[in-house]
Design a protein around this nucleic acid. Sequence first.
DNA 1: GATAAAAATTAAGGTATCTTAAGAAATTAC
DNA 2: GTAATTTCTTAAGATACCTTAATTTTTATC
Lengths: 172, 172
Amino acid sequence: MDILNNLESKNISKGIILLHQGENCSVAYKVLKGCLRSYVIDKSGKEHILQFAPEGWFISDMDSFFNNKPSNTFIDTIEDSKVLLITKQELGSFEKLDKETLIEQNERLFRNLISTNKRLINLLSSTAEERYIDFIETYPTLLHRLPLKLIASYLGMTPEYLSEVRRKLAKK
Amino acid sequence: MDILNNLESKNISKGIILLHQGENCSVAYKVLKGCLRSYVIDKSGKEHILQFAPEGWFISDMDSFFNNKPSNTFIDTIEDSKVLLITKQELGSFEKLDKETLIEQNERLFRNLISTNKRLINLLSSTAEERYIDFIETYPTLLHRLPLKLIASYLGMTPEYLSEVRRKLAKK
DNA sequence: GATAAAAATTAAGGTATCTTAAGAAATTAC
DNA sequence: GTAATTTCTTAAGATACCTTAATTTTTATC
């Protein structure tokens, strides 16, 4: 995807909100350094993390980006980060993409879908403890890099309960 | 996607398992009549439904189909159904697809991803009652067509609890 | 290196949802 | 149209997970 070669990179310090819920998302980010996340805030004010994007990952509100709708999600930096910005003009519509780019896009969507589905199965069928163990095995480096309260949010439990889960596991 | 025009259709009566967990999935189904579902069975023997596929929908274990792996899911008919079978030979690899088909595939993956993400957010941030209400609004026809115990499974709750949720809603 | 801020833990009490089991209602089969 | 099967509901007791709030530990700031 040689589009990416021409883009400028941007440094963003930790804690900056790049996209607000309700805004139209006009950019996708490719993370070169650091880590971003996307999340929603529910009616009772609680945050729920949809995705972590460390080095090499893309992050965006795809529905908002491609379909020009107000986004459901927030995106912010959870570490000092360096990102590439991909705007809609640069990416263009599906129709304008060349075949190679379409295939890459296809594969990316595909991998994303498989992992989202795996996470869905996890939420439907596993306990908090099982989900935590699975996270450790799937993202061992993130575990030591991110605050546990963010991991708890990603896993769909409170930090207090994750703490209890970890204590029980340590005893074993 | 003119591939589909040449395929033969097949009638399958209710309750037939078309794909077992662990098998390699060599076919994708397009549903012409009736309804299929995909589901997993967890360690404790409970079923969790990932997808309903009524008329017009595609269903398959994509990870197994495209990556030639044992499937994580079961697929079966939940009504007497008529389906088109799409085999790997017919679809071919990504590389061999023409541009138009790639774009369609892209859009399908894309829509799928957006709805899977919506469901994920729902599971992370909504109560059982909220999820049920959302289901009614999103799939009003399925509600009257499918047994409630299947809907409960899709929504991530027990049929007994769904029953309680419905009773409480009826009182309002 | 002291102070402030953020993250993690602990514990008590509460609530949403599950489990089990039984009965009622609806559907299917003969 | 009766029996058999499946689905749906009800209710009591159990449990996973949450809430709140206080304490400890770690990290960031000057």
